[in-house]
Computed example of a mutant assay.
Amino acid sequence: MANQTVLGQQTMVPEEPGEAYAMGDTMPHAAAGQGYPMEPEYGVDGSYGEPSCGCGDSCCDGECCYSEWPCDEVLIDRGWWRALRQKYRFRHSSIDGRSIGRGYPLRGTSWLNRPYSFGLETGGFMMASRISSNNTRNNDVLLAASLGWDWDHYWGTQFRVGWSTPELHSNVPSTQVPSNNVLMYDLSLMYYPWGDSKVRPYYRFGLGMTDIDFITPAGIREDNTMFSLPIGVGIKYQTKRWVALRAEAADYITFSQNSASHMQNFTLTFGMEWRFGGRPNSAWSGPRRECDW
């Protein structure tokens, strides 16, 4: 055995091939109490005792200096794209469970325990465009009622009716007086990205109709029913197991018909909804249940 200094450590190096380390000798990669034959380690330049660096790397000061692009390998980091898709993809309870852990996930109860809802809302109705060239734009109060059905922790359906009476002043003389009624009704698909949580944001996309009564540029009263696409974003907050507060902002894209022009009507509403339906199973209604229905 001979003394050899490698990287600042004094190591016993075997002089004969096959000579083993004795118990207690220093060997960086040997388990205590065992003997292994010495296998010298060479660096990229062939010098004994230097670390063996990989392809494209160099040795400096006894350590490997890794190059930014080793060899000819092309590195493409798609982790951000996978994370983005995972974060904003559509979810379903069969894959993602009841919730994603945000907004105070419900324990002991669920929105699906009472999957049906009836809601009342009020707020503002704002016209972004005129119904015709001779009519002015106007804003007014909106009243709305809705019926809903949540058939999954992340999905539901809603039918909504909204009513407003903005004054549509016409600059064309007419002997007829319009009612200025605006009636909107639609069927929407609801998506709840956080799932079964106390704070429950949602998006909704739907199809509907908008009925409006106004004076045409020819001075004739006309009542048109136009195709519309409502797109909305909102939030629900469960105050009791059968009551929730809600707020919503929506854009009703209405397509032109007859004398009526293409319109965009914005609504901002606040209200309440009452939950009902469903029935507890034996596990919930048993005398020893420890959770609230």
Rank of each mutant, 00 (worst) to 15 (best):
M1I: 14
G8R: 10
Q9K: 15
Q10S: 15
M12Y: 08
E15P: 01
G18S: 09
A20H: 10
Y21Q: 14
M23K: 13
G24N: 12
T26C: 13
M27K: 11
A30Q: 13
A30P: 00
A31L: 14
G33R: 11
G33Q: 10
Q34P: 02
G35Y: 07
Y36L: 14
E39K: 12
E41K: 15
D45W: 08
Y48V: 04
G56E: 04
D57L: 07
S58E: 04
C59S: 07
C59D: 08
C60Q: 09
E63V: 05
S67Q: 13
C71A: 11
D72H: 05
W80K: 15
R85C: 14
R85N: 15
K87N: 14
Y88G: 12
H92W: 11
H92Y: 03
H92S: 10
G97K: 12
S99M: 02
I100K: 07
G101A: 09
R102P: 00
L106Q: 01
P115V: 02
S117E: 04
E121Y: 06
E121P: 02
T122I: 01
G124V: 06
F125V: 03
M127W: 00
A128V: 06
S132N: 09
N135K: 00
N139F: 02
D140T: 05
D140N: 09
S146E: 03
L147K: 05
W149Y: 15
W151M: 06
D152V: 01
Q158L: 10
F159T: 06
R160I: 01
R160G: 00
W163I: 04
P166Q: 05
S170P: 04
S170F: 04
Q176R: 09
V177I: 09
P178T: 10
V182T: 07
M184Y: 09
Y185P: 00
D186R: 13
D186T: 08
L187Q: 11
L189R: 11
M190G: 11
Y191V: 08
Y191I: 06
R204F: 10
F205I: 13
F205N: 08
T210M: 13
I212C: 01
I212D: 00
F214Q: 06
N224M: 02
F227K: 07
S228A: 12
L229C: 06
G234T: 09
T239K: 01
R241W: 01
W242K: 10
A249K: 05
A250C: 08
D251R: 02
Y252E: 03
Y252G: 04
T254R: 05
F255L: 14
Q257H: 07
N258F: 06
A260N: 03
H262V: 10
F266N: 06
T267Y: 08
L268G: 13
T269V: 13
T269K: 09
T269Q: 10
R275P: 02
F276H: 09
G277V: 07
R279C: 00
S282F: 02
P287D: 10
C291F: 03
W293N: 00
